[in-house]
Design a protein around this nucleic acid. Structure first.
Length: 425
DNA sequence: TCTGGGGTCCTAGGACCC
DNA sequence: TCTGGGGTCCTAGGACCC
């Protein structure tokens, strides 16, 4: 059996775990730049605030009633790690799916015993991390995902819901479920399915898998098999490194200045290179993109990207910075108000398996070795002493492009200066 | 004024080859 | 008049996820 374990309104729960005053209040967590609401407490949902609602479109009355926080990814990432440590106590196979969801595999349980086991899991997560969790149990991922949803909506499940592939309960649930509510079926696919008369999850389950594959894709065919209880979605190998690395941000304020774009892309490139080294890869190419704000229809729109191949596969920040500079120069146009830019590292390969070129001479090897040692030292210092303790180029302060995050809470668990404080009355 | 960021997989279609 | 067929590889873009 597969369990999908997720934290209820995860970001909100992280905030509440460290500030109990937030219990019972409508609480929301905002995306980067304080742009949209990306996590909502039950109370905020009840006020009718939609997922992804832009902050500036919320009615003033709702803004006054609720607590809206900037996102604190250092905190959420650390709490997520702690939750998964607890999960590992309950099963040897835990697959991290996202910051707030993990698939946990169980085998060898008697009927009934598994649900009790998952209840204990839930209670332990709550007690050790402060995060309330829901557990959806089923033979396949698509069904486990669905079972997990039921723990949120249906009273009586007490946080754990088991769906067998062929039980009466499962059939009833599928008959009432719009096909668009399934994991892997979003708007586009749902619209096409509806045109063909498939509106419920049950109807999709009954459809001919081969026909679904021909008319749609193998992806949707797998969903059909999963609904029938045959597991087809493979366990992802977490040791697999990322195939590309992207760092991008919207600006706090629009900017037309090349200098701003240069500074922002340099910062993104620095972060991307750090991620690249952390996963032990080398990049063969760099992509830079820029764009104006598509929501401002009055403004002239411009979006472009450019790829620059690196002279050799590498992970050193200066080479990547040079390529980024070249790419940005190729696409920057005067007279536009830019809203966002990003840096993507492409064509990644395993650093261990990098092959020496036939044209190499010993000086190349020496140069690479120096660069490796320099980067390792840099990463070590920045890890121990804080981000950007040592960096390339001049520091920038108060840039137009810096993020807005005015309501961020403390990084309680990852920053010595921001530990939680308690007062006695 | 103000609208997120970071990924994956799949498919279609073009380029190219014999 | 009549101009093949089959395969691989690569890329861009679509769709989806949280």
């Amino acid at each position: 059996m597969i369990a999908l374990v997720d934290g209820d309104s995860f970001y909100v729960s992280c905030e509440r775990a460290f500030d109990p005053r937030l219990e019972g209040l409508p609480v929301g967590v905002l995306s980067n730049n304080d742009g949209c609401v990306v996590a909502r407490s039950r109370e905020l949902k009840a006020l009718g605030v939609a997922m992804g609602a832009p902050l500036h479109q919320l009615p003033p009355a709702i803004r006054r009633q609720s607590v809206l926080l900037s996102s604190n990814y250092a905190l959420y990432g650390d709490v997520s790690r702690r939750v998964n440590q607890v999960l590992a106590e309950f099963s040897p196979v835990v697959e991290l799916y996202s910051i707030d969801e993990s698939f946990v595999h169980f085998s060898g349980f008697e009927p009934g015993a598994l649900e009790a086991h998952c209840q204990r899991l839930r209670e332990t997560v709550q007690r050790w991390t402060g995060i309330p969790a829901g557990v959806g149990l089923a033979p396949t991922r698509v069904l486990a995902k669905l079972a997990n949803r039921l723990t949120k909506r249906e009273l009586g499940y007490e946080g754990v819901c088991l769906l067998e592939a062929d039980s009466d309960v499962t059939c009833q649930v599928l008959e009432q479920l719009p096909v668009s509510d399934l994991w892997g079926v979003a708007r586009r696919t749902a619209e096409r399915l509806q045109l063909m008369g498939i509106e419920t999850a049950w109807q999709l389950r009954q459809a001919d898998p081969k026909w679904i594959r021909g008319s749609f894709s193998v992806v949707l065919e797998r969903v059909v098999w999963e609904l029938r209880g045959h597991s087809t979605i493979e366990l992802e190998d977490l040791s697999m490194p990322r195939q590309r690395i992207l760092v991008s941000r919207s600006f706090g304020k629009l900017s037309s200045e090349l200098a701003d774009l240069q500074a922002a892309t340099r910062q993104h490139a620095t972060r991307a290179a750090e991620k690249l080294r952390r996963q032990g890869s080398l990049a063969r190419a760099v992509l830079v993109f820029v764009r104006t704000n598509p929501h401002r229809s009055r403004d002239a729109q411009y979006a472009n990207s450019h790829v620059v191949a690196l002279p050799e596969p590498c992970d050193d920040t200066p080479s990547i910075l040079a390529a980024v500079h070249q790419a940005l120069t190729a696409i920057f146009l005067e007279g536009h108000r830019y809203q966002k830019c990003g840096v993507m590292l492409l064509d990644l390969m395993d650093a261990e398996r990098s092959q020496l070129s036939l044209l190499d001479d010993p000086t190349d090897e020496k140069r690479r070795d120096r660069s490796r040692r320099l980067m390792a030292t840099l990463d070590h210092l920045n890890r121990e002493m804080g981000r950007d303790t040592v960096r390339f180029g001049l520091p920038h302060k108060d840039n137009a492009w810096e993020l807005r995050c005015q309501r961020r809470t403390q990084r309680y668990t990852t920053c010595w200066k921001e530990l939680v404080t308690a007062k006695t009355q």
